[in-house]
């Protein structure tokens, strides 16, 4: 049951940008390629009143190779009260998306987060640095092949055992 206004947007996206629409729990997602992303979001912004970019994130489908990543853009139209997400599939090797900072100011930090957490490069970004992790950090934590853990929990009451495997701050 897709909203009528949303349906017309999806039709335009399908026709002009070769988008593939799919519905998930009543929410509309349109798959577009990275080449069409900027033009499609420009259209959403200018013609369909999607002036509010809620968030940008990604999903890692490791060990699947192509597409390994889906970059998810969630837009919102406040005048029409609509919500739509674009998904950009990316392959395993050298994933790159173009930047949306020209259209939405708040894409800036979200795209930095995208690079920091997933190692997805953003082409044309004005300020590409790590945002959450320290700048000398190695790896991109939210990738599925990045380990979660840091320290094994110690099931022992012997303080010597714990101290052995724990770095200690000194005076």
């Amino acid at each position: 049951m897709m909203d009528k206004a949303l349906q017309s947007i999806v039709q335009v996206l399908e026709k002009e940008f070769a988008g593939e629409a799919e519905e998930s729990f009543g929410e509309v997602q349109v798959l577009v390629s990275a080449d069409n992303l900027v033009a499609a979001s420009q259209k959403l912004h200018d013609e369909f009143g999607m002036t509010f970019l809620s968030t940008i994130t990604a999903v890692d489908y490791f060990p699947q190779k192509a597409p390994r990543f889906h970059v998810v853009y969630i837009f919102r139209s406040m005048s029409e009260n609509l919500q739509l997400s674009l998904r950009v599939p990316l392959a395993d090797e050298a994933p790159v998306v173009p930047t949306l900072t020209g259209i939405y100011n708040n894409a800036n930090w979200r795209e930095r987060e995208l690079w920091d957490m997933f190692g997805i490069e953003v082409e044309g970004h004005p300020d590409m640095r790590r945002i959450l992790m320290p700048k000398d950090w190695e790896g991109h934590p939210l990738r599925k092949d990045y380990p979660l853990g840091y320290e094994e929990p110690q099931f022992t009451f012997s303080f010597e055992d714990i101290d052995l495997s724990k770095p200690k701050g000194e005076i």
Binding site: S24, F25, S54, T55, V72, I74, S85
Partner: peptide, 16 residues
């Protein structure tokens, strides 16, 4: 996948 948002004291709190 689902994106659901609520109005938190600070604004739109969404969970994807």
């Amino acid at each position: 996948s689902v994106y659901s948002a609520v109005e938190s004291p600070r604004g739109e709190l969404g969970v994807f």
